[in-house]
Design a protein around this nucleic acid. Structure first.
Lengths: 201, 201
DNA sequence: GGCCTTCCATACGGGTGCGTATGGAGAACC
DNA sequence: GGTTCTCCATACGCACCCGTATGGAAGGCC
């Protein structure tokens, strides 16, 4: 990532996200970041007021881009080109969740700094957005809005729990072999509304 | 906590846990800790090799004491002195989980440093132990060992998810009013095996 | 090609935190 | 009451990181 060219604020923010994903928010130091970009602090402090401004820019960038990544994946068209049903979208989401094991991911790294006053509001918004999305899916499956929201809160908590499993190093659900298939099946059966047609479960 | 008397290694470890619960592992600095105890670094480095040794001692202390706290609460006797049934124990656990909102707790603070090489194994062990305990409850409710383990993994993930909710600041399940009761009821209904007698759900 | 604006390197000061060195107080022991 | 061992305070060196000051190179503009 050594840049010979001049740098923009966007370059700094992008590389900052890489550093965060690798070593967490605490690993984000101005001088080391400058070295990675083949520059020095002098350049940095021309583009940014201070370190906090860089963190804010990086977080904003993350919230804009990666936020809807998982959701977009769930909504991606079927092989026949059709729109996936809510049940199918929920199934995809849960499969992704249970298979989550990637350490070094940005989301996992940010989770570590959830208490940080700059990070917390971002995570709050992202989480709230996800709950709203899952609630819409439950509504599509026939649940009343209040019930759908409650089920979504529970479902997202399972997601966050598995993220935590990934952080402490793949405790239980190793995505290998039939063991994992059985677990995935349990999760889907548990979190799918009872009156969903069996063919969609 | 200013100690006039001489200090023991246990004193340092105990106060270290207080500091961690207040500000996270990163807030644990030797000199500030010494000030809290009315001492200086000179004392500390006589009792401990270095900061890592203090962290290890504090974590060991936490793992020994607080680990089984929640479980002990679930197993505490009924008003009539009898042993609570597995269904009742599971109900208590879930109620505690859903009501979890205390920030500044040690568990929440340690969660932030789950990536730390000293912390991760401790959290792994504690989590594994909890899964084993919940699995035993599910077995008591009639599930086969493999099914019980899978359900326990899912249940503990809900617990970890709610811990995360607490970290980013009580996103959805505010334990106030009937809204919360409804949510708790959903969680219990979802995580309790289907063939549990209705009276115990 | 001179000029001005944009961007960046170097050098410096300050703060924090870890770990070491060394001497000295206080209890214990005889 | 002197010696020895235990415990601790002070002082120092070192590393890291933030932020500022200042001079200078690079590129547009006329």
């Amino acid at each position: 990532m050594a840049m010979a060219q001049r740098l923009s604020a966007k370059d700094w923010a992008r590389e900052a996200l890489v550093v965060i994903s690798e070593g967490g928010l605490g690993a984000l130091a101005v001088e080391s970041l400058a070295r990675r970009l083949g520059a020095t602090k002098g350049s940095f402090y021309w583009h940014f007021e201070n370190r906090a401004a860089l963190v804010a820019a990086a977080l904003e960038r993350w919230e804009l881009t990666h936020t809807e990544g998982t959701i977009a994946l769930a909504e991606s068209p079927l092989p026949d080109g059709g729109q996936p049903s809510p049940a199918e979208q929920l199934r995809r989401l849960l499969t992704t969740v249970v298979g989550y094991t990637r350490h070094g991911d940005l989301e996992v790294a940010l989770l570590a700094s959830a208490d940080d006053p700059q990070v917390a509001p971002v995570l709050r918004r992202v989480t709230e957005r996800r709950i709203a999305y899952v609630a819409r899916l439950y509504e599509g499956l026939g649940l009343a809005p209040e019930d759908a929201r409650r089920s979504a809160v529970l479902g997202v908590s399972v997601f966050l729990g598995h993220l935590q499993y990934a952080r402490i190093g793949t405790v239980p659900p190793e995505p290998t072999g039939p063991e994992w298939e059985d677990y995935l099946e349990l999760v889907i059966r548990t979190l799918m509304p009872a009156d969903t047609p069996a063919g969609q479960r």
